[in-house]
Write a protein that binds this DNA or RNA. Structure first.
Lengths: 142, 142
DNA sequence: GGAACTGTATTATACGACTGATACGGTTTG
DNA sequence: CAAACCGTATCAGTCGTATAATACAGTTCC
């Protein structure tokens, strides 16, 4: 069962995109593996305090990407082979890093300055793993 | 007159926030100075191909932040002293970098790997300043 | 077989973002 | 003064996101 322990619901951006990103990042990190059970739509909606339809939208789009497999009536599972993982990993890196680099360049920051700045924030988040905001888990029924 | 030459309209996220971010980044970079003329609502809306109300919303919120001053009937100007610039600069760095670091950590990337990756994207955007997407300018009437 | 789950689909409602059109009054400039 | 700008305000309409309340069919398991 994949865990939503580290998921933090942000108030910026669509919820269904946040969920999709969280799962993609988990796959890229190797925390989420192949043929792993996904929380049911209803269970996750209760856990996160959002509407089941929102979860369904996220899962449905992930299925269209070939990351999730759903059979009507049965549980849903991840579906990621080695090639898919590498593809997701590269795409996640690209989209996240590209945006940051563009922002830094736009502000006239050199690469060295930017990396030094990143180091500062890296250490800031080192101590506590929670940060601010709520934490959710899908590990209760294990 | 502040220039929108380097502004690229993204399809992700509210337009009024993109405009606010662009101006904040310009101030942080020192490209936009104090008492500088801002394109009129109508002119910028025509330039970017968006509704004048969207520009008004962005400008209005920037005015509430104390970055822009508007007098009914007259042109609008920036209003940033040294303290304001430093405040904006720090806040922009924080919000952009914090998000990237969080994403990288979530994907299990070390600080060294992340910086090496950033370097890769830094060089990629070095050659052409345009990237993909449209470019707009507010310098025509100079 | 039947209860308790699953995924899937439908309808209605609400809100924010954005558009389009239009209007009013103040400022600037020839 | 008067035209041409400017900021400001309002209204109606579209679209995407999210909610709420159901409903139905397939599966898992005792």
């Amino acid at each position: 069962m994949i865990s939503f322990e580290r998921f933090v619901l942000e108030d910026s951006g669509p919820v269904y995109l946040q969920i999709m990103r969280y799962i993609r990042q988990g796959i890229a990190a190797g925390v989420i593996g192949d043929r792993e059970e996904v929380p049911s739509r209803r269970a996750l909606s209760t856990l996160l305090g959002v509407n089941p339809n929102t979860i369904q939208k996220a899962y449905h789009m992930l299925e269209e990407e070939g990351i999730i497999q759903s059979r009507s009536g049965a549980k849903s599972y991840t579906c990621v082979d080695a090639g898919t993982i590498e593809r997701i990993r590269r795409e996640q890196f690209r989209s996240e890093t590209c945006a940051w680099v563009k922002a830094m360049r736009q502000m006239g920051v050199s690469r060295e300055e930017a990396c030094a700045l990143a180091e500062e924030f890296w250490e800031a988040g080192e101590a506590d793993g929670t940060g601010d905001g709520n934490r959710f888990t899908a590990e209760s029924g294990r």
